[in-house]
Nucleic acid binder design. Structure first.
Lengths: 371, 371
DNA sequence: TCCTTAATTTCGGCGACGAAATTATTATGG
DNA sequence: CCATAATAATTTCGTCGCCGAAATTAAGGA
């Protein structure tokens, strides 16, 4: 999977505000010649256009470039075990629209997904603008081969999702792990604007980590990178679904928080995120301590990775966003107390369409501006 | 610092045994055309030569290529606070010879180092073959700028070592952190032969980590990557020199092992590595448990990194090699119990010249085969 | 008008790649 | 035994991405 990231990065950067070529070169660390070449092609493709030159003192006036956001679209789907969220994205990262469809991962899932995509692709006026489809799938995904290695959440293993979907669709198809899809979105439209190296911490039903080094998403040999949830914390800790004890996930995943709450007698049964949130909001005794401790565990584990990779930024995303205010009081001091140099921590509000937007970014990164 | 690693990798690979071009292409994951181009130049430079074609069944016979190990040398220095170890290395990674010189980091260190290098460079018959000098320095090093940011061990901070040395020497000069220098050596001549992604765990006076992802040594923005020693393990652990508590280093560095031994009343004073070794060898009660526990702590911390980066190999190096038999009983189960997929663990015997050889490899990687 | 400055483009080069061509064998059918 | 096919290694060719240096362009100022 060659990622023609550079042109995608130019589009993403210009999506926020028009910039001239020398600014683009400076921000992306590219040579002026390279930028001239890329922008020429993007203009030829109809994705960019030159604005009126800006006279700014002496010297040749700079020529700002503007994205034509509706020149092409990408479609991103987030595959969940009960439903699929789709987002149709413009070149500047904004949403044309989104939709939600019920989904059953056990009943001919490839055909169901193809049908949803074909509906969008067939729409007159928009369908023909779609340059590709990206899928964000939870679990262990091999994006190079397009195979879902293992997705306990969806009950899939070794499903050749991309090849099979590619046969049914007339546009390129990409798949990746949901956390890495959102990491790609961060690289193009978020933290990547200020950092070439950063981590994305995804807290929700599991705990995942997206890794960006040198403006490239690290995927590992078979796309297995990012298994932060099973970083060992305490060999005597709670048992984990992976068969070991004391993984990070057994403290900070949503189901684990609920389980710990039951253990401490704070709730009588394992509750969902919303209820945990309500309990914390109501300041139920012990709940906030529990969450702050979980946050601290998460923070210490993250600090280790931060130190070793020497990243300067970490961005928190994920379904557990509502709980973040209670995890953070533990997380932030633990990270800051464990990190050698400074670390910029950002938190993104969660939205059901976030991973879908990430999936759409996969397409932007890999295919929109290629060739 | 552009690393013309590919040609160095070809040299290193051929240093072990002659191989034909298509084997080189397969092992390095390059196209056949690329290999043809690189080998052509290496032959032109006089570094390689074609052997007699090997008839091996049908098809065009393969043409094995052989390194001419004495066609060029690289010089590597390991800078220690009491002495400097130098190694003059052949193209195939073997030692021409090594030397040790006393060294005082406080007394015009740049001039001292230059003098040692010039002695070698001036030797008739060998000096003119030396293509560059590499320095392995403990501490936080910025190899791109050639600056020693901070080396508590040597008492240096913000020393522009490379630029200053470059002025005094007629050949290219490179510097890097000692762990990363040895990591480069592993990439070319060790674990890199079988793995594109791996970690190097350096255990000694500190605990460092070298990271290889996609056959590139990860250095981080300013060369700060690899600070494994200060990965937090226990917020209530022993105080660390960095000002925090419970860093990995406070369990597994040599001085920390000695300190823990004192705390447990196993020794009356902080002893050196050799004495710890003797105590363990004599099976002094408690010593082996102490070391196994330290190994386990190290292993758990390493497993976290292994999981997140999804590497499949880890190589242990460092001055504490003699203690490894006692650290390992804790380390190996901790790592294996914390890692999701399989991990190949290798251990390298320590030798005072190891980092010096690594430093020589820096030169091989960056300059020998360039242009 | 000519000089300076800053943005941008052109040009040449490097490293890598895939596809097609070339080369040097072995196997096989007459 | 020889011509031809099959096979495998290697080279050539055209392309792509990126870069630095030099050239060009379009101002402002003396």
């Amino acid at each position: 999977m060659r990622e023609d990231l550079v042109r995608a990065e130019i589009l993403a950067m210009l999506g926020r505000e028009p910039l001239n070529r020398s600014e683009i070169a400076a921000r992306l660390g590219l040579g002026a010649a390279t930028v001239t070449e890329h922008t020429r092609r993007l203009i030829d493709l109809g994705y960019l256009r030159e604005l009126a030159p800006q006279v700014s003192g002496r010297g040749r006036p700079r020529v700002p470039l503007e994205v034509l956001p509706d020149a092409a679209y990408t479609l991103g789907l987030r595959v969940h075990h009960t439903h699929v969220v789709g987002v149709l994205m413009r070149l500047n990262g904004s949403e044309v629209r989104r939709f939600t469809q019920p989904f059953d991962p056990r009943a001919e899932p490839v055909e169901q997904l193809a049908k949803m995509c074909l509906e969008v692709l067939g729409e007159p006026g928009t369908g023909e603008r779609v340059r590709g489809v990206g899928l964000a799938v939870p679990g262990v995904i091999d994006p190079a081969k397009g195979v879902v290695r293992l997705s306990p959440h969806l009950g899939w293993s070794d499903l050749a999702l991309r090849p099979r979907l590619a046969e049914l669709l007339p546009v390129p198809v990409l798949i990746d792990n949901d956390t890495r899809a959102s990491t790609t979105a961060e690289l193009l439209f978020g933290t990547g604007r200020d950092h070439d190296d950063f981590l994305v911490l995804a807290v929700g039903g599991g705990v995942g980590m997206g890794i960006v080094l040198g403006r490239r998403v690290h995927r590992g040999p078979d796309g297995v990178a990012g298994e932060f949830g099973h970083v060992p914390v305490d060999p005597l800790g709670p048992p984990c679904v992976c068969g070991r004890r004391g993984c990070v996930e057994t403290y900070a995943a949503d189901y684990a928080l609920a389980a710990r709450a039951v253990e401490r007698g704070l709730t009588s049964r394992a509750v969902a995120v919303d209820e945990l949130h309500a309990l914390a909001l109501a300041d139920t005794p012990g709940i906030r301590d529990l969450m702050a401790e979980a946050g601290a565990t998460l923070g210490r584990a993250a600090a280790g990775i931060v130190n070793v990779l020497a990243v300067r930024a970490l961005t928190v995303i994920g379904e557990s966003h509502v709980l973040w205010p209670y995890l953070e009081p533990g997380f932030r001091p633990a990270v800051e107390g464990g990190v050698l140099s400074g670390l910029e921590i950002s938190v993104r509000p969660w939205d059901d369409s976030a991973h879908a937007l990430g999936a759409a970014c996969l397409v932007l990164a890999a295919t929109v501006a290629a060739r």
